[in-house]
Write a protein that binds this DNA or RNA. Structure first.
Length: 934
RNA sequence: GCCGGAGUGGCGGAAUGGCAGACGCGAAGGAUUCAAAAUCCUUUGCCCGCAAGGGCGUGUGGGUUCAAGUCCCACCUCCGGUACCA
């Protein structure tokens, strides 16, 4: 009784593929190439999740299909093993990260291999391999050695940075400082996001709503020396070069919004001596204006004015006050003695607020008056200066002009402190008139010589006017901040950087990059690798042997921060192409031949992290001539999330009775209800035994705490890898979020059983071909069904519509199962078509059908178009757009004939009899519609 | 609040503006079996009807069209993301 037994045939073919190196890719592609890439996983301690195989199966199907079409395919896999998840696991289980990572990686590798993915395992990489780390560090040196030429919009070697004469004159140290201030990798001492719970600082992108993206821990602001990457230099290109990419629009938009380019104007407000008389103030203001007109708008602000950034210079006449951030550099200068105490208290409180507090309390605007005034450059009027924490120091100039009539936040601020609200824009035609605050564009009122102008024209003109008199300038700003690139954790790449020490062992502030030949810098051996409660990195506890080095007679201390999780993933795709190269990070010939990535599949959660960071690195490598493409990932597809099985939830009150869903309060306990106790009533589900009680029906995210996590190992054991692969593709569109259903896996398993029985004689003693498999020619009908299936599956693979491809193959099996004679030729086409989806079963059946070489290397069957057409076709006939009858006509029957045949159809004839036909729409091979007069 | 995405049978889901519900799950019936499992076959959107047949149906309300799940306008609900960026 040879039944379909995946637990035998799956390992058998996996071993065979591994031994034969069936999926090895050539060094260079021959003919067409396809670089098909998955987002490589973090080998966490929990093993593979059913979400992983979804994208991996999709790319595997495409890879196998492309290979069968004769394309040179590179389809690699590796592990992103540095970083917090692995390290947290290591700490939790008390094992050194390298050991736990090795173990977790082994589990992931085993699970991936168990699913029969056609990776070229000879190209496997891990970001933690010293050889990989070496090149990650090398790229850091490239970043360190690059400055951004904003005129050319290009990164260039630091040696090509022109040193201004006045800097030269100041000597070596100043030249060094000048260079350092232009490098793409630089150190900065600024308030950063410190997460005490994780024991590290985090990048902006890793902080969401004031808490850490990973773990949801609170984050506070702390000034610290950190390594930064100047991603903001590339902001324009990261935005504009998205255009050409075949990515989901939603992801492009997410990136554009994150970059957050805005245009507007900078305006300087004159800051007079506060104790001067009104006349002196006016004189000083006039002198200042004359000076500005003569010398133009200065690039650097001096202390005699307050510079603000606004996107709406057309509201300049509606200013009621200036607001500066608590951390603004002019804070001390503008704070009058009488206000010093309140200002100090306010700013002190603001600095100690966590980001979470700042956002949480966002409803109520707070602030303090400084006691100072500045002078409006166009009206000459005095404007009070306030401090408020709703203004961010890190954006624009850290100061704004507050226009309560036309900005919601300014309005709230003005309301809270009773400030004047001056309306300067009238809506054009009643849009938004009833709102308290009008933030739209319209016609200017009470705006001096600009009164009556259209907002947009105003914006252009005033920016130009201000530039002419040296008081303002058009300006562009970005929400994107420079990338905080260092972490106070153990499990990451050490920086290839040395800090010079003086005779006393104190850092001199001079930094020295290692030579490429000195790489990799290994991680030191530590007995305690846990993060500290303070920002002092674990690496600072390393032995002196590691920590201190001597070069050219000078003593140095190594950088003890490590790189963040994202470093390795920024460039791993390149290393896959040339994983063993120990001369260079990649051979340019290989890079040119394989790049860019033709299909990149992964989760949407990386939309602004990994995908933005790696694009940035890639552009730097491109500018420096190390890679040949501007963008790394030509086509991106996000697979949707797989939720847990649908659950019904009822609510029980404290007295034990049921509470209808929607009416429950937080004191009622959610209770799981089994589906057999539930029925549908109208729009909602209710308890079968108590129909007045509604229950919620919903699939939830898989999580350990909910206990709805599906383990791929168990599914493979119960149904086989081919069933898991097929089910995940059959659930619905790749990009959709969809709930898991174990009985659905059973469904595709029985489909595979049916495939097996098409070929194998289950009644026989031994494994042998079913006697119903014949050598004869397929009938015309069989050819039609087979080629139509093939045609549909081929098209669906190309559009990644795997669910409908599988449905079509199921239809084929439904057709073929009752056949008493099943030509081998027909079955061979089917098995070849099935093979990218269920490769193990396909290999086995292919062999049983008598083929010598594996189906994985077979040629994708060619669609014969003559089988796609029928001789006759059934056509719906409508009257008044309603389906009334069907007729069968020869394919290609023209409209006139079609109309005649349709009108003659008895039922139609009865319906249109004695009625006036106004119009007949007859479309050959489609439909006929009679429009009649009532 | 803002930005995405989605609302189609009991469920997952199909449908170049042209026969709504392909395919699968579940359910019901039958064949096979001593019996069960497995397998095979049939039915399965809702309502009226013994039937033939008819009516109603893609979140709601309008519109465009000979024809709308699909296009346009307004709204509702759910899911996901995001939060003072001037």
């Amino acid at each position: 009784m040879p039944k379909y037994n995946p637990s035998v045939i799956e390992p058998k073919w996996q071993n065979w593929w591994a031994e034969q190196k069936t999926f090895r890719s050539p060094r260079l592609p021959r003919g067409e190439k396809a670089f098909i890439l998955d987002m490589f996983p973090y080998p966490s301690g929990d093993g593979l999740h059913v979400g992983h195989p979804e994208g991996y199966t999709a790319t595997d199907i495409v890879s196998r299909y492309e290979r069968m079409r004769g394309t040179s395919v590179i389809h690699p896999m590796g592990f992103d093993a540095f970083g917090l998840p692995a390290e947290e696991y290591a700490i939790r289980t008390g094992t050194p990260p390298r050991e736990s990572t090795a173990r977790n990686t082994a589990t992931f590798r085993r699970q991936l291999q168990m699913l029969g993915f056609s990776y070229d395992w000879d190209r496997e990489i891990s970001t933690t391999d010293p050889e990989f780390v070496r090149w990650t560090q090398w790229i850091f040196l490239v970043l360190y050695d690059t400055w951004f030429d904003s005129h050319r919009q290009q990164g260039r070697p630091i040696s090509e940075l022109k040193i201004p004469d006045e800097i030269h004159e100041l000597g070596e140290v100043s030249v060094g400082t000048y260079r350092d201030s232009h490098r793409l990798a630089y150190q900065s001492e600024a308030p950063v996001n410190w997460c005490p719970e994780l024991g590290t600082v985090l990048a902006n992108e890793e902080v969401i709503g004031g808490v850490s993206e990973r773990g949801g821990h609170p984050v506070i602001r702390l000034p610290l020396r950190q390594w930064m990457l100047r991603i903001t230099a590339y902001a324009d290109r990261l935005g504009s070069e998205l255009e050409s990419l075949d990515w989901p629009e939603s992801i492009k938009k997410l990136q554009r919004d994150w970059i957050g380019r805005s245009t507007g104007a900078e305006v300087d407000f004159f800051l007079p001596a506060q104790d001067a008389s009104e006349k002196d103030m006016n004189d000083a203001f006039l002198t200042w204006k004359i000076h500005r007109k003569a010398n133009g708008y200065p690039a650097q602000v001096s202390g005699d004015c307050l510079r603000i950034y606004t996107t709406r210079p057309d509201t300049l006449f509606g200013v009621s006050c200036m607001v500066i951030a608590p951390e603004h550099p002019l804070r001390g200068q503008v704070t009058q003695p009488a206000q010093a105490d309140v200002v100090h208290d306010y700013c002190d409180a603001a600095s100690r607020k966590s980001d979470l507090d700042r956002t949480d309390l966002s409803q109520e605007k707070t602030g303090v008056f400084t006691g100072s005034y500045c002078i409006h450059p166009l009206t000459g009027k005095c404007v009070p200066i306030w401090i408020a924490d709703y203004v961010l120091a890190s954006y624009g100039t850290g100061a704004i002009m507050s226009v309560p009539a036309h900005d919601t936040r300014d309005f709230e601020f003005a309301e809270a402190f009773g400030l004047r609200i001056i309306s300067v824009i009238e809506p054009n035609d009643g849009d938004g008139v009833d709102a308290q605050v009008f933030t739209g564009y319209g016609r200017s009122i009470a705006s001096g010589s600009y009164t009556g102008m259209d907002s947009k024209a105003f914006i252009e003109k005033v920016a130009a006017d201000l530039l002419k008199i040296g008081i303002g300038s058009p300006a562009t700003n970005y929400k994107l901040r420079d990338w905080l690139f260092s972490r106070q954790r153990f499990w990451g790449e050490p920086f290839p950087i040395l800090h010079e020490l003086n005779e006393l062992g104190q850092p001199t502030g001079v930094v020295r990059a290692l030579d490429p030949q000195e790489l990799p810098v290994p991680l030191p051996k530590l007995s305690d690798y846990r993060p500290g409660k303070t920002p002092d990195p674990p690496l600072s506890r390393a032995d002196d042997d590691w920590l201190y080095v001597e070069r050219d007679g000078k003593k140095y201390r190594r950088e003890t921060n490590t790189m963040p999780q994202w470093a390795g993933s920024c460039w791993y795709y390149l290393r896959f192409l040339d994983p063993a190269n120990n001369e260079q990070f990649i051979d340019p010939e290989i890079e040119k031949a394989w790049m860019p990535v033709d299909l990149y599949v992964g989760g949407a959660e990386h939309a602004v992290l990994h995908l933005l960071y790696s694009r940035f690195w890639h552009k730097v490598l491109y500018d420096r001539g190390f890679v040949s493409t501007v963008e790394p990932f030509a086509r991106l597809v996000n697979q949707g999330m797989i939720l847990g099985e649908v659950e019904f939830t009822g609510y029980r009150s404290s007295s034990g009775g049921w509470v209808s869903a929607g009416r429950q309060s937080s004191s009622d306990t959610p209770t799981k209800v089994f589906s057999e106790h539930v029925e549908k009533q109208g729009e909602s589900f209710v308890l079968r035994d108590a129909p007045e009680v509604r229950v919620d029906s919903r699939a939830h995210k898989m999580s350990k705490s909910r206990g709805n996590v599906v383990n791929p190992d168990e599914i493979v054991q119960a149904f086989g890898a081919d069933s898991l692969r097929l089910y995940e593709m059959f659930m619905g569109p790749l990009e959709a979020t969809k709930p898991w259903s174990t009985s659905g896996v059973g469904g595709v398993r029985s489909f595979l059983d049916r495939c097996w029985r098409l070929v194998v004689d289950e009644g026989a003693e031994n494994l042998q071909r079913s006697p119903q498999v014949t050598e004869g020619r397929p009938t015309d009908e069989q050819m039609r069904v087979t080629h139509r299936m093939l045609d549909k599956v081929t098209a669906d693979i190309q559009s990644l519509s795997f669910n409908t491809a599988i449905a079509k193959m199921m239809e084929f099996v439904n057709f073929a199962t009752p056949l008493q004679e099943r030509p081998r030729e027909m079955l061979s086409i089917f098995i070849a078509t099935l093979s990218p989806f269920a490769p193990h079963l396909a290999e086995e059946l292919w062999t049983i059908l008598g083929h010598d070489s594996p189906v994985s290397l077979a040629t994708w069957p060619l669609v014969d178009n003559r089988w796609l057409q029928d001789d006759t076709i059934e056509i719906p006939i409508q009257v008044q757009g309603k389906l009334r009858a069907r007729i069968t006509v020869p394919t290609g029957t023209d409209a006139k004939q079609l109309e005649a045949i349709a009108a003659a159809e008895p039922k139609i004839a009865a319906l249109i009899d004695e009625k006036t036909i106004i119009k007949v729409v007859a479309i050959p091979d489609r439909m006929v519609n009679f429009v009649v007069k009532k």
